[in-house]
Simulated assay, not measured.
Amino acid sequence: MYEPIRTKSVHTMADTTPDFPHRSREEELDIQLAGHLAALLTVTDELRTLEPSADLDTAAERLTEQVARLRGGSPVRAARSAHGGERHVAALHRRAHMLAGRALVVAASRADTAAAILSAERMDAHTAAPGGPREPIAAG
């Protein structure tokens, strides 16, 4: 009634050596963490242009060190642009807070204490910044 299958299935592992390289879970987490920290570094650099401060300078240095450690080389830094007003700065703080939160989740998942501490500190700094995200009001 049905015609028999004449070709090998693409879904079975007929060969023990795959055609593509596989990464371990730790390698995948390293890539994710480096990406989140690099994005946070980009936002930090833009904030440094709009609101120069020693805290942001220190944060940029520490972020650069962490990204370099995870990627094995120094990160590509974005060119700074000096545009935007209060709304733009507030949006950057919210974005930085979100990126730091994502980095914290991945750092905790891979048990990277240094990156987790740095991410938590950046979340706190962007929460405290004017126009930054605010803590939700607890229902009670």
Score class of each variant (00 low, 15 high):
124 D>F: 14
102 R>W: 06
103 A>W: 02
118 L>T: 07
124 D>G: 07
103 A>R: 08
126 H>C: 11
104 L>M: 07
132 G>K: 05
121 E>Q: 15
125 A>D: 02
127 T>N: 09
130 P>R: 13
123 M>G: 10
107 A>L: 00
130 P>G: 01
129 A>W: 04
110 R>N: 10
131 G>Y: 10
107 A>N: 10
124 D>Q: 13
101 G>A: 04
104 L>S: 06
114 A>Y: 02
127 T>D: 10
129 A>G: 03
129 A>Y: 00
113 T>E: 12
133 P>Q: 12
107 A>K: 14
125 A>P: 01
132 G>Y: 01
101 G>W: 09
114 A>K: 07
118 L>Y: 03
129 A>I: 04
130 P>I: 06
105 V>H: 10
125 A>F: 04
114 A>N: 10
128 A>I: 01
112 D>A: 03
101 G>C: 07
118 L>Q: 02
132 G>D: 01
110 R>V: 09
106 V>D: 06
104 L>W: 04
128 A>H: 00
131 G>D: 05
111 A>I: 09
113 T>Y: 06
114 A>R: 09
105 V>I: 13
104 L>V: 00
101 G>H: 12
117 I>T: 13
124 D>C: 06
130 P>Q: 05
114 A>V: 14
100 A>H: 01
100 A>Y: 00
130 P>D: 03
100 A>W: 01
109 S>M: 07
111 A>R: 15
115 A>V: 14
110 R>A: 05
109 S>L: 08
127 T>W: 09
123 M>Y: 01
122 R>H: 05
131 G>H: 07
129 A>N: 11
116 A>I: 12
120 A>W: 04
131 G>M: 13
131 G>I: 14
104 L>Q: 11
104 L>R: 14
122 R>S: 03
105 V>C: 00
118 L>S: 04
103 A>E: 00
128 A>Q: 05
127 T>L: 12
102 R>D: 07
121 E>L: 05
131 G>T: 12
113 T>N: 03
119 S>E: 03
100 A>I: 06
123 M>R: 15
